[in-house]
Design a protein around this nucleic acid. Sequence first.
DNA 1: TCTTGAACTGAACGGATGTTCAGTTATGGT
DNA 2: ACCATAACTGAACATCCGTTCAGTTCAAGA
Lengths: 197, 197
Amino acid sequence: MARKTGSHSQTTGPRVRAAAATLFARHGFAAVSMRQIAAEVGVQAGALYLYTPDKQTLLFDLMQSHLEELLAAWQAEPKGDTPQGRLAAFVRFHIGFHLARPEAVFIAYMELRNLSPENFRTIEASRHRYEDALEEILRAGQADGSFHIPDTRLASMALIAMLTGVTNWYREGGRLARAEVEAIYCDMALKAVGAGV
Amino acid sequence: MARKTGSHSQTTGPRVRAAAATLFARHGFAAVSMRQIAAEVGVQAGALYLYTPDKQTLLFDLMQSHLEELLAAWQAEPKGDTPQGRLAAFVRFHIGFHLARPEAVFIAYMELRNLSPENFRTIEASRHRYEDALEEILRAGQADGSFHIPDTRLASMALIAMLTGVTNWYREGGRLARAEVEAIYCDMALKAVGAGV
DNA sequence: TCTTGAACTGAACGGATGTTCAGTTATGGT
DNA sequence: ACCATAACTGAACATCCGTTCAGTTCAAGA
């Protein structure tokens, strides 16, 4: 047996990445073997190397594309005209984006230490750009008196940690609807930076 | 060669756990081999099995003792008399405790998925008890009108995520001293739950 | 000083690991 | 209908994995 009937790199490639994402998120990068990924796709392990040079690059590509998608989506988002409005928009965007991609989020936050040093630096740079986007909002609010924050960098890190934490406990169909969650986080975030609501 | 000169289970045992904690935190449970741990201790791999029945239990014991220490330390902490005071105490305690044990914190949050189902349930229960401690404070503040929170459970999760996030970016000797960080987080947490400061 | 057991070695177990590659089959353009 | 090549197999590579155990050496109590 060799080539499968109906096989095509444009369908197998994405399926490889999807299988890897699911398995990495569930069991962790180091705990997942190339053979497991291949089995999920319905292919032998060797065939994976048509779609990635190695396992490490497979992980890196998943993280990289996630972060690029995140940055692009945020840049495409309509910007509010006040710092309050922009922060509220950020909170809702962040929660919505992250809840829609639990696997990618998990991987991007948990598998950093499995990146090669060079790949790590690349990913860190992207992440830093996203954190900067929030800090910029906080600085604007600080400047015009809407917010009262002793340290905008610390506040950025604190808010992002708070918001991203939602992926750890939120379950679709649970006690709270997504819109409620967004509203509550929005309220907390605005209050935390000293913007009355 | 067999027994080492000066060897004793009371010194080797803790060294095994310390080496495992360091390596698990740095590279992840699945990526660390028993031989690597043994090498760090200065011993052969087989000798580790005098101190743990298997690798899985070694991980579980590290997590379990961390959480038990956390709960015991919090119970030993002096309780404030107002909800504001209790929340402020919790924030400072949480940050202090977590910054003092970066390795254990990392492991307890990142390696949950490498626990066997039974061990996972045990760890989750301990974690839940700690979350409940915070929620109880929030409920008290909600009841006497000090706090204004739509959902105390959500607020608990949000605050813990925000506070624990400090371990991801704080560096000893960095821009901010630990006391400053505690003060700022304290301020943000109180504001976030609607307690004027 | 002798003896018992604690502490450890070193080799071995079956099996899994990431990756390569010669060979095989389906596909799509001519 | 044919053919180049894209897609994949299956076996092999050296190396590592967690765990066990018979044998060896040291510590310490009698």
